[in-house]
Deep mutational scan, measured.
Amino acid sequence: TETYETTDETEARKIAEELKRRGLTFRIERHGTTIRIESD
C-alpha cells in the first residue's frame, strides 16, 4: 500500500496516472483541501 497526500489537484492527477500506468488500483479520498490517494 502506498499513500500520497497533496493539496494540489494537478499533482493528484499525476499520481493517479502513474499508479494506473503501473497497473495498480487505488482510491481517492478528499478531506477538505487535502486529496489522499491510497493504492491497494
Score class of each variant (00 low, 15 high):
Arg21Met: 07
Ala12Gly: 03
Lys14Phe: 09
Lys20His: 09
Glu9Gly: 04
Arg36Ile: 11
Glu18Asp: 12
Ala12His: 01
Arg36His: 06
Lys14Arg: 13
Glu5Gly: 01
Glu18Thr: 08
Gly23Arg: 04
Ser39Tyr: 14
Gly23Met: 03
Gly32His: 04
Thr6Gly: 03
Glu17Ala: 13
Arg22Thr: 01
Glu2Lys: 11
Thr6Phe: 07
Asp8Asn: 08
Thr33Arg: 10
Glu11Arg: 06
Lys14Thr: 08
Asp8Glu: 05
Leu24Tyr: 08
Thr33Ile: 11
Phe26Thr: 04
Phe26Ser: 03
Thr10Trp: 12
Ala16Thr: 13
Glu5Pro: 01
Glu38Gln: 13
Glu5Ile: 14
Lys20Phe: 09
Ile28Val: 10
His31Ile: 14
Glu11Met: 10
Thr25Asp: 10
Thr10Phe: 11
Arg21Pro: 00
Thr33Phe: 11
Glu38Cys: 14
Arg27Gly: 03
Ile15Pro: 00
Glu17Trp: 12
Glu38Thr: 15
Gly23Cys: 15
Glu5Ser: 07
Arg30Ile: 14
Arg30Pro: 02
Glu38Met: 15
Phe26Pro: 13
Ser39Phe: 14
Ala16Asn: 00
Glu2His: 13
Ile35His: 01
Asp8Arg: 03
Thr34Gly: 04
Gly23Glu: 02
Thr7Gly: 06
Asp40Thr: 15
Glu29Met: 14
Arg36Ser: 04
Thr3Phe: 14
His31Met: 10
Thr7Phe: 06
Leu19His: 01
Asp40Lys: 11
Glu11Asp: 05
Arg21Tyr: 05
Ile15Gln: 02
Ile37Met: 01
His31Lys: 09
Glu9Ala: 09
Tyr4Glu: 00
Thr3Ala: 08
Thr1Ser: 11
Arg27Asp: 04
Ile28Thr: 05
Ile35Tyr: 10
Ser39Glu: 04
Thr7Met: 08
Arg36Thr: 07
Lys14Glu: 09
Ala12Val: 05
Leu19Ile: 03
Asp8Ser: 13
Glu17Thr: 09
Glu9Ile: 10
Glu2Val: 14
Ala16Asp: 01
Phe26His: 04
Thr34Val: 13
Glu5Thr: 11
Phe26Asp: 03
Arg22Ala: 04
Leu24Cys: 13
Glu11Lys: 07
Gly32Asn: 04
Ile28Ser: 03
Glu9Tyr: 09
Asp40His: 13
Glu18Arg: 09
Ser39Cys: 15
Ala12Leu: 04
Thr25Ile: 09
Arg13Ala: 12
Thr1Gly: 12
Lys20Gly: 06
Thr1Cys: 13
Glu11Ser: 06
Ser39Asn: 04
Asp40Trp: 15
Thr34Ser: 06
His31Asp: 11
Glu2Ala: 10
Thr3His: 09
Glu29Lys: 11
Ser39His: 08
His31Gly: 03
Tyr4Val: 03
Leu19Pro: 00
Gly23Lys: 05
Arg13Pro: 00
Phe26Lys: 03
Glu17Phe: 11
Thr34Trp: 10
Arg30Lys: 09
His31Val: 13
Ile28Leu: 06
Glu11Phe: 09
Phe26Val: 13
Tyr4His: 04
Thr34Phe: 10
Thr34Leu: 14
Arg27Tyr: 08
Ser39Met: 13
Ile15Asn: 00
Arg27Met: 06
Glu38Pro: 00
Arg36Leu: 07
Arg36Ala: 02
His31Trp: 11
Ala12Lys: 00
Glu5Lys: 04
Glu5Tyr: 14
Ala16Glu: 06
Thr10Ser: 11
Phe26Gly: 02
Phe26Asn: 02
Thr25Gln: 10
Ile37Leu: 04
Glu38Ile: 15
Thr3Gly: 04
Leu19Asn: 01
Thr3Ser: 10
Thr34Arg: 07
Ile15Lys: 04
Thr1Tyr: 13
Thr1His: 13
Asp40Pro: 15
Thr7Asp: 12
Gly32Tyr: 03
Ala12Ser: 03
Glu9Val: 08
Thr10Ala: 14
Thr1Ala: 11
Ile35Trp: 14
Ile15Asp: 01
Lys20Ile: 11
Leu24Trp: 07
Lys14Met: 13
Glu18His: 09
Thr1Met: 11
Glu9His: 06
Arg27Gln: 06
Glu5Gln: 07
Thr10Arg: 10
Gly32Lys: 03
Arg13Ser: 09
Thr10Met: 12
Glu38Phe: 15
Arg30Val: 13
Ile28Cys: 15
Thr3Leu: 13
Arg22Glu: 00
Ile37Arg: 01
Glu9Asn: 04
Lys14Leu: 12
Arg27Cys: 15
Lys20Val: 10
Glu5Leu: 11
Thr7Leu: 07
His31Arg: 10
Arg27Glu: 05
Arg30Ala: 05
Asp40Arg: 12
Glu2Ile: 14
Ile37Glu: 01
Glu29Pro: 00
Glu38Lys: 12
Arg21His: 06
Thr34Lys: 08
Thr6Asn: 01
Thr7Val: 07
Thr7Glu: 12
Ile28Arg: 02
Lys20Asn: 07
Lys20Asp: 05
Asp8Gln: 03
Thr3Ile: 15
Leu24Glu: 03
Asp40Ser: 13
Arg21Asp: 04
Ala12Glu: 01
Thr7Cys: 10
Ile37Ala: 01
Arg30His: 08
Glu11Thr: 09
Asp8Trp: 04
Thr3Gln: 07
Ala12Trp: 04
Asp8Phe: 05
Thr7Asn: 10
Ile35Asn: 01
Glu18Ala: 11
Glu18Ser: 12
Thr33Lys: 12
Ala12Asn: 00
Arg27Ser: 07
Glu18Phe: 12
Thr1Trp: 13
Ile37Ser: 00
Thr10Val: 12
Glu5Ala: 05
Lys20Leu: 11
Lys20Thr: 14
Leu19Gly: 01
Thr33Val: 10
Glu5Trp: 14
Arg21Asn: 07
Glu38Ala: 08
Glu5Val: 13
Arg21Gln: 07
Glu11Ile: 12
Arg30Leu: 11
Leu19Asp: 00
Tyr4Cys: 05
Leu19Ala: 00
His31Ala: 07
Arg36Cys: 06
Thr34His: 06
Arg27His: 10
Glu9Cys: 14
Thr3Pro: 03
Glu38His: 14
Glu2Ser: 08
Ala16Ile: 15
Thr25Gly: 10
Phe26Gln: 02
Ile37Val: 04
Thr34Cys: 11
Glu17Asp: 10
Arg13Asn: 09
Thr6Glu: 02
Glu18Met: 14
Ala16Trp: 09
Glu29Tyr: 15
Ile28Trp: 08
Glu29Asp: 07
Gly23Ser: 02
Glu9Phe: 08
Ile28Glu: 04
Arg21Lys: 09
Gly23Tyr: 02
Arg27Ala: 04
Ala12Tyr: 05
Glu9Gln: 06
Asp8Met: 04
Asp8Cys: 09
Thr25His: 14
Leu19Tyr: 04
Ile37Thr: 01
Arg22Cys: 12
Ile15Ser: 00
Glu17His: 08
Ser39Lys: 06
Ile35Thr: 02
Ala16Gly: 06
Thr6Ile: 06
Arg21Ala: 10
Thr6Met: 05
Thr25Trp: 12
Glu11Pro: 01
Thr10Ile: 11
Thr10Pro: 04
Glu17Tyr: 12
Arg30Gln: 08
Lys20Ala: 11
Thr33Pro: 09
Leu24Gln: 05
Ala16Phe: 07
Glu2Pro: 05
Leu19Arg: 00
Lys14Gly: 06
Ile37His: 01
Arg22Asn: 03
Thr10Asp: 14
Leu24Arg: 10
Glu38Gly: 03
Arg22Pro: 00
Tyr4Met: 02
His31Gln: 09
Arg21Gly: 06
His31Asn: 12
Thr33Tyr: 08
Thr33His: 08
Thr33Glu: 11
Ile35Arg: 01
Glu29Phe: 15
Ile15Val: 05
Thr6Leu: 07
Arg36Glu: 00
Glu9Met: 08
Thr3Tyr: 14
Ala16Lys: 06
Glu38Val: 15
Glu11Gly: 02
Thr6Gln: 00
Ser39Thr: 15
His31Ser: 08
Gly32Cys: 06
Thr34Ile: 14
Lys14Tyr: 09
Ala12Thr: 02
Lys14Val: 08
Arg30Tyr: 14
Thr33Gln: 12
Glu11Leu: 11
Arg21Trp: 04
Ile28Asp: 02
Ile28Pro: 01
Ala16Val: 15
Thr33Asn: 13
Gly32Ile: 02
Glu18Asn: 11
Ile28Ala: 02
Arg30Phe: 13
Glu5Phe: 12
Thr25Tyr: 11
Glu17Gly: 08
Asp8Leu: 05
Glu11His: 07
Glu11Tyr: 09
Glu5Asn: 05
Glu29His: 12
Thr1Asn: 10
Glu9Arg: 06
Gly32Phe: 03
Glu17Lys: 10
Arg22Gln: 05
Asp40Leu: 14
Ile37Trp: 00
Lys20Met: 12
